[in-house]
């Protein structure tokens, strides 16, 4: 496990900074934002599709899909991270395939961190979107169909605009969850400064170093601000969309 050497390797570089935030800590914030943004964006289409399947579909294995989607919520994050490592590691079945055919690798880089964050945030995203789909009056979709709209058009012109607040809420919730993801990330891609050291990993690292409590506290403050900001933004956006939708 490369966890230990990285932690000790980061010690020397963080200790020399007094007051303000070390470049390394800033790096962690920037990396977290990047990882969370891509985790959110890349999982959004799949999240909408799965939410639709769960809300509207009737097919064998629906309960199974529901279970699999929710698994990261109930499994210990370390287990999820370990399973990711087994599957997506360079020698894992999926990882080897991706590397051999596309040259993509997830092991120990920021893409891996994004993958871990996306999977951990996925149940929350799907849940928010699914609830908004279930709240859509299917009578409106029937009405659109009788007016001549095919299924795709009904989805694009009726369903999608009506669930937009739910999609926004789900996306921002996923973003916030990704910002805070720790267990699965550190297990899957470790804690390499500048590469996979996200904000929570950096906090963890600082807490291991005597005298770095100030750095840790600043990072904690930043993560609280980001989380609150995300919540507020989702609330405001959703309210604005809803108001536009209802025209009141």
């Amino acid at each position: 496990m490369p966890l230990l050497p990285t932690v000790s390797g980061s010690l020397g570089r963080t200790a020399d900074v007094a007051g303000g935030l070390s470049p390394e800590a800033w790096e962690a914030v920037a990396l977290s934002l990047k990882v969370s943004f891509w985790a959110m964006l890349a999982s959004l289409p799949l999240g909408i599709a799965v939410a639709l399947l769960l809300a509207r579909g009737s097919f064998p294995g629906r309960q199974l899909l529901n279970g699999v989607v929710h698994l990261p919520l109930i499994l210990p994050p370390v287990v999820t991270g370990y399973l990711l490592l087994l599957a997506f590691g360079r020698r894992g079945p999926v990882g080897a395939f991706l590397y051999d055919t596309f040259g993509i690798t997830f092991a120990f880089n920021w893409k891996g961190a994004a993958l871990a964050a996306a999977i951990m945030a996925f149940p929350l995203m799907v849940r928010a979107i699914r609830l908004s789909i279930e709240a859509v009056d299917s009578g409106l979709e029937e009405a659109a169909a009788t007016l001549g709209a095919g299924r795709l058009r009904v989805f694009a012109t009726i369903t999608l605009p009506l669930i937009l607040p739910g999609i926004i809420a789900g996306a921002i919730l996923a973003f916030a969850k990704a910002m805070g993801e720790f267990g699965a990330t550190i297990t899957f891609v470790s804690n390499i400064p500048g590469q996979t050291q996200t904000l929570p990993s950096a906090v963890y690292t600082f807490l291991q170093v005597p005298g770095a409590e100030v750095q840790a506290a600043i990072l904690v403050g930043i993560s609280i601000c980001l989380a609150m900001g995300a919540l507020l933004a989702s609330e405001l956006l959703a309210r604005r969309v809803r108001r536009r939708m209802e025209g009141q």
């Binding site: 009056d137 009788t146 709209a149």
Partner: peptide, 30 residues
């Protein structure tokens, strides 16, 4: 959507995210 049957429902079922003009124009556009 391939029947050309105008259906007026008991509960109107107007599209809440569109104004009246867009509701009226929906059929031909679709």
């Amino acid at each position: 959507h391939r029947r050309g049957v105008g259906y007026v429902f008991q509960d109107a079922r107007l599209f809440p995210h569109m104004n009246v003009r867009s509701n009226l124009a929906y059929g031909l556009r679709a």
